[in-house]
């Protein structure tokens, strides 16, 4: 099975990657494609919270940094790991990638919780869920424990 692990450079996307690794059977997964999508018209086309290093105005370097970090999670796990950087609208590109690679699963992170998540619709994870050609694993942050 070809699995797509999407990253938007957020820590939650790293958690999603680790979550996949925590339960999936590496002998069943043939290939992993780590996909980052650069959004050319957004204020910050790609923000990388995952790797060290400054951006010198290059959002491609930022996307590469995030993809490298996520790919690092699966290093030595078994499946072949591809790193892909795409450009355009995040949800569209993830879905397109899934079709192109004939993916069996898409792993995305969703939400930091809080007000903005409850009020605003149209997030990438939601759109991926709606239109994906295969099952989608949406990894949400664990709720904070009440004391």
């Amino acid at each position: 099975m070809h699995v797509i692990v999407a990253t938007d450079g957020s820590r939650q996307s790293l958690a999603a990657a680790k979550h996949l690794k925590s339960f999936a059977d590496p002998t069943k997964v043939t290939e992993i494609s780590v996909v980052a999508v650069i959004r050319p018209l957004a204020s910050v086309a790609f923000a990388d919270d995952l790797s060290e290093g400054r951006i010198d105005g290059s959002f491609r370097d930022a996307a590469q940094g995030a993809v490298d970090t996520i790919a690092g999670v699966f290093e030595g796990w078994g499946p072949k790991v591809n790193k892909r950087i795409r450009s355009g609208s995040a949800a569209n590109e993830i879905i397109k990638a899934a079709k192109q690679y004939d993916a069996g699963l898409i792993v995305v992170a969703a939400g930091g919780g809080g007000l903005s998540d409850a009020v605003l619709v149209g997030s990438t994870a939601q759109r991926v869920q709606h239109y994906a050609p295969c099952p989608v694993l949406v990894v949400r942050p664990a709720p904070r424990k009440k004391k």
Partner: peptide, 9 residues
């Protein structure tokens, strides 16, 4: 600072 879900500064 990047918003965790919206990915905008």
């Amino acid at each position: 600072k990047i918003h965790p879900t919206r990915r905008s500064p």
